[in-house]
Amino acid sequence: MKKIIAVLLALVLVLSFAAVSMAEEDLIKVGIINLDPAESGYREANVRNLTETFTKENGYDATFVTAPTADKQLDAVRGFITADVDCILISAAETTGWDRVLEEAKNAGILVFLFDRMIDCDPSLYTAAVVSDMRKEGETAVGWLEGLGLEEYKILHIQGQLGSAAQIGRSDPLTEKCEAEANWTIVREGTGGDTWDPNEARKIAEAALDAGIEFNIVYAENDGMADGVVAALDAKGISHGKDGDVIIMGFDCNKWALEKVLAGEWNFDGQCSPFQAEKIDAMIKTLAEGGEIEGLNELNQYINDETFFETDTITQADIDAYGL
């Protein structure tokens, strides 16, 4: 009896997923490499946007690979080369180290599209990049802070995934400003390390408060982390938001975050649009019909237009239109 179980288990093992892996013809084969959707609300919206756009009905045979680290992403590109796809879409975990692999893809005749984050390399190695200008996001935020005209800027700086374009883009303008101006100080800096984890942010804020550090601004590099800090502030009974002691800033414009901005609990939210799929879809279809892609700058980029929201000016219509 047990022997039969053993044989059955073996059969189930082998056949169970051979069934899910068949290839199809006549559709444009696309390989999409993205980060973990559980990472943040932004990522989840981004993944959903891609899965909804690159469907069979739309003419694509799309394979989605979740590769959160640089080396796994390179392996995924090689896998797609072996699988002989037509296009590869990449949201890079790191900005460097792509040259060799992109060369291999080019040699194999595969078109490479970047989305969400930029890569540091020769523009000829990719066909187009539909990205957000992260640096501009950071500069917008810092500009908004400056516009408040405060006497002193004591900032609790919560960074996102270290080494990612998003983190670098949002951190650098702040750190540069703080070095340049005397009344701008980063009183504590912390990070989720390799994550955008709200719980880590909460612990960082808690530790800072326990150590008696004072701050009047929280510059959190995404909504989730801002939420973590707010949880720590609430636990200690410290007020925040429009009429509070601490200014709260987040990024990504999740719907729930924008609602907090509207309610006056948060002050600022910078937009980072996760919707790149339609643009790339249009580009691929243009190329397939023999046309050329328009609207790219000299780095072959198409930059998303992004804005920000603050308590004084945000409306419910904004939340409905922009909230993730």
Partner: peptide
Amino acid sequence: ITKIIGLSDVNESF
């Protein structure tokens, strides 16, 4: 296993 599943039509990472 990882490769087959990764390249299969099962798209959600989880």
